[in-house]
Write a protein that binds this DNA or RNA. Structure first.
Lengths: 344, 344
DNA sequence: TTGAAAGCGCTAACAA
DNA sequence: TTGTTAGCGCTTTCAA
């Protein structure tokens, strides 16, 4: 347990230096003699001193608080994101404050800014699809609030994004379906206002085209990324095209909806219909049949984003460290497309 | 957007009072003349002043930060808990800081205390099963850190817990299985070191006894609350007792494991085997067959706990407001036990 | 009922 | 390389 009664003054006294010097040591200022530094550091260890964040914050207008902004992000994956972010935060003396929001609200951006200034957040991590919001990013820049966006395309300076190449990943998915011999394929996209929905769809369709497979317009349906929406879209697709042998959905929740509908209609998956999703959330591996999908190391992405953000915050004056930030998602093949090892 | 440049001094000047008086207004001290209060309040509104949390905290040793401590809590439900807690936090000017932890670590309690003192958390909300940890509660009391535990039994002062009567809920589950005519029932408990596991099991078994149904010892298996554990336990139960017509698991994850095993063994659920879980997490409604389970309004519980915690923090000297805090979980019947409307 | 002054624990100018 | 002196924006003695 930290000794809450020890302050910088005590340390200064014990070390026989001014508190300004102790402060320099704490903040890793280079302007401290080596011997002084060592002495101060050893005393800090001895008395188990740790500087008060509030006082530090008040004096330097920092808070050591990072915000996590999201809306509509896969609910089953957020925990992983949080774990990833928190691990880095804890290590570096920051705290993570969670901010689910309603990005459809008119006042959404203002609400975010209020939350940020209200708690003096030092910076924010933004999950998709909110991360695609240009107005938000612009507002944050204007407000001088450092941010890192997790996204599927790098539509911002490298230091501000962590991207996973979802387009490429979906090409892999397309290859998989081609290998399985599917010709009549249905596609349930996410809301097309989301950049990532378009990335995934275009990646998938363009790759199919390479193999001479064109997905008819009536075999594409825009969904809302929800389970219920998956059911509704699948119903429509299957009624319009009786010959579909595969349906790919923009995310696992909708794919689960497809499985549900198939089950209710007595369609066997994968024997009669192959199904795939995207996210590899907890549902994907537990549902029956288990779901072929695409996995992003989302906790690593979050950790990386946090790392980047803190770098940015701490090196406001020096140039920001550029961390590699291109993440490769990968295809996970499971029962829902595995016609070799038929389910049941 | 809040005006970050306005301080208590500005307000004081504008209102023609001392900042001490403004401070009194902010903190709802009764020692302010009515007219003065009104004037100050209107100015606060006009200039959109909101006191700086850090400065407030530094001066009063508060942080306006609440912690959420958990480990092993159903991953698919944590989001709801967070939403519930955050809604109250935001409303009351607090911020929620998330603290997943490893309660099996030796240093676990110390780590919690460190996190609390390190960020000067004003109080913490503890989810089960960590909430059952007596040592942690004792340590928190000793450290003078207000807390509220979410639990299945009220093993603490009413002001410190929000309970849901899981024993009672499991009786309802037992009634349901009796109605379905099951005689040979298997039970997969949670770790028996968890109070809630015992509550659920005892509630279930005792109710069955009332109907003259005794579950044989070999039909009870202690699980670990994970999907994999559900599979393993189900396998063992089914191999020991071929006549089982129902398996109830301590949570949805394990029940999902049972469904998985049944599927792999070609056992039809619910025609040949009825299955039920506990939690009503996102998986329960999406899995096939959908899962009969027990729903707790966990977001409300979290909101209530937050409410209670803040009450406690703010009325440290006055007597704490006693909010009602007994929550009734309810049985949700779905396909996995619905033999009338057989699945498929 | 109100106010003046001190100080929470730290960092930031400016000197030295 | 180090120290001195002010604050950061608020609450809290204590007095009036």
């Amino acid at each position: 347990m930290q000794n809450k009664n020890i302050t910088i003054n005590d340390v200064a006294k014990l070390a026989g230096v001014s508190k300004r010097t102790v402060s320099r040591v704490i903040n890793r200022s280079p302007l401290v003699g080596e011997k002084t530094r060592e002495r101060v550091e050893s005393i800090i260890k001895d008395v188990n001193f740790s500087p008060d964040k509030q006082a530090r914050g008040l004096a330097s207008s920092k808070s050591y608080l990072l915000g996590l902004i999201y809306d509509n992000f896969d609910a089953l994956s957020i925990i992983q994101v949080q774990r990833g972010a928190i691990s880095v935060c804890t290590e570096l003396g920051y705290e993570l404050v969670v901010h689910p929001c309603e990005s459809s609200n008119d006042a959404f951006i203002e609400e975010c800014l209020n939350a940020i200034s209200g708690s003096k957040l030092d910076g924010v991590i933004i999950l998709p699809p909110v991360s695609e919001n240009k107005e938000l990013a612009a507002a944050l820049r204007e407000a001088n609030c450092p941010y890192v966006r997790i996204a599927s395309v790098d539509f911002d300076d490298t230091e501000n994004v962590v991207v996973s190449d979802e387009r490429e990943a979906m090409k892999g998915m397309a290859d998989h379906f081609v290998e399985l011999g599917h010709k009549e394929i249905g596609f349930i996209s996410g809301p097309l206002s989301f950049h990532s929905s378009r990335e995934r769809m275009e990646g998938f369709l363009s790759e199919l085209e390479k193999f001479g497979i064109t997905v008819a317009e009536e075999s594409i349906k825009e969904g809302k990324n929800s389970f219920e929406s998956g059911i509704a879209c699948a119903k429509e697709l299957l009624s319009k095209n009786k010959n579909l042998t595969a349906i790919i959905a923009n995310n696992d929740d909708m794919a689960a909806g497809v499985l549900r509908l198939a089950n209710d209609m007595g369609i066997d998956v994968p024997a009669q219909l192959s199904v795939a999703g995207f996210d590899d959330n907890l549902l994907a591996s537990r549902i029956i049949p288990s779901l072929t999908t695409i996995n992003r190391p989302i906790n690593n992405m979050a950790a990386l984003a946090t790392q980047k953000l803190i770098n940015k915050i701490q090196s406001e004056n020096s140039l920001p460290l550029t961390l590699n930030s291109e993440i490769k998602p990968k295809l996970i093949i499971r029962e829902s497309t595995d016609t070799m090892k038929e389910n049941k």
